[in-house]
Design a protein around this nucleic acid. Sequence first.
DNA 1: GCATGTGAATGGATTCACAGCT
DNA 2: AGCTGTGAATCCATTCACATGC
Lengths: 221, 221
Amino acid sequence: MTQNRIQTDRDVVSELTTGRLSVYLRCLSYLQSLHQETVSSAELAARFHLNSAQIRKDLACFGEFGTRGVGYNVSQLKEHLIRELGIDRSRKVIIAGAGNLGMALADYRGFNDNGFHIAALLDVDPAKIGRISRTGIPVLPYSDVKRIVEEQNVEIGIIAVPADAAQDVYDALVASGLSAILNFAPVQLRTNEKVKLKSVDLRINLELLSFYLKGVEDGTA
Amino acid sequence: MTQNRIQTDRDVVSELTTGRLSVYLRCLSYLQSLHQETVSSAELAARFHLNSAQIRKDLACFGEFGTRGVGYNVSQLKEHLIRELGIDRSRKVIIAGAGNLGMALADYRGFNDNGFHIAALLDVDPAKIGRISRTGIPVLPYSDVKRIVEEQNVEIGIIAVPADAAQDVYDALVASGLSAILNFAPVQLRTNEKVKLKSVDLRINLELLSFYLKGVEDGTA
DNA sequence: GCATGTGAATGGATTCACAGCT
DNA sequence: AGCTGTGAATCCATTCACATGC
């Protein structure tokens, strides 16, 4: 109910909850664009096929922000989530690997916007170094990592290199001094516990669908 | 909320389990390349920082495949998983959106290999139609969807278009007759329950890291 | 002896249900 | 009345611990 509680609860927020907060935030931006002033947990729940109690619990993690009998104030809640997610200022990102995926992420709106700014791409290929992405992000050699990270205060690294190069790249990023890494290479990395790592395995999702399809074929699903 | 589990003849397998099976499979391929003949749940557990009982439970979903006192036969288990995941034959995939992300996915090794084959990319941009990706995947207009899906027996669609086009593309893919969709657009789709949908939200992962970083800054994590 | 397979115990996340505020 | 905030109940996933079989 009071300020102490906000601090206490914070380190207990699960990734599942945090992920949903991101989704709510996007929805609030949309509602704001419609000039909707308040929203109830039931309305949000209907949009996402979630349970309304879950949404209230998620939002209550950081204090009481709703008004009983009314709901949540859209723009107030939005600002609040932005602050809680730590994207109320721009965080610098560097992408290792200027291949297809790295380039796509560099130019991806969701990545280079609204709380995140991509400082540079990194690559080993001399043919790529010195060029820029479609939206103007420069491709630099790995020898520049440490300098860029320090000069531009880069906090997040993204690994978008083939699996066999991922560990070396991981080690180089960690050595450069950044604090969090998003890994797209399908490998189990030997990690440094001081750096937060989140891995995303794109192929798993295709295999999940294949598994579902097989179930349908076998007539068991 | 409903579609999160997949029925099999033996039991019900959660998506979490299925995802881990994919990871084990990749590891088994690696062990096979080292000519290792057997592997224990404890060894796999150590590799992935998982609990060995969890691995045994995951693998036991489809029957008893290990040998007590010995472990699992690497190549036998690998073949078994490939069959259970339904990638023992090539499944055809079509990608909607020949932008950066679509192109990256089309040429991504993990997507166009080993159980999956990308039949085509789709786009609305006349400048892109008729071209091919770096690895030779053709870009076709949406008017060809139904024909391609039928002729080539495409089962899986991937949505790699901007958020505002995603619903229309989803509807077109569903209408074309395929059975499963992997969605990369950050929107809540109005779905047809006959088609399995899996959504991947890339931005959530960045926000997760931002949330972690904020926790560190505030000294609460 | 050693590692699997699995019922029982634990731990988390979700949902229920209602007290409490507007 | 309407909707939040939350303890209690439920559901699901993970882990423990051991009987079972090589």
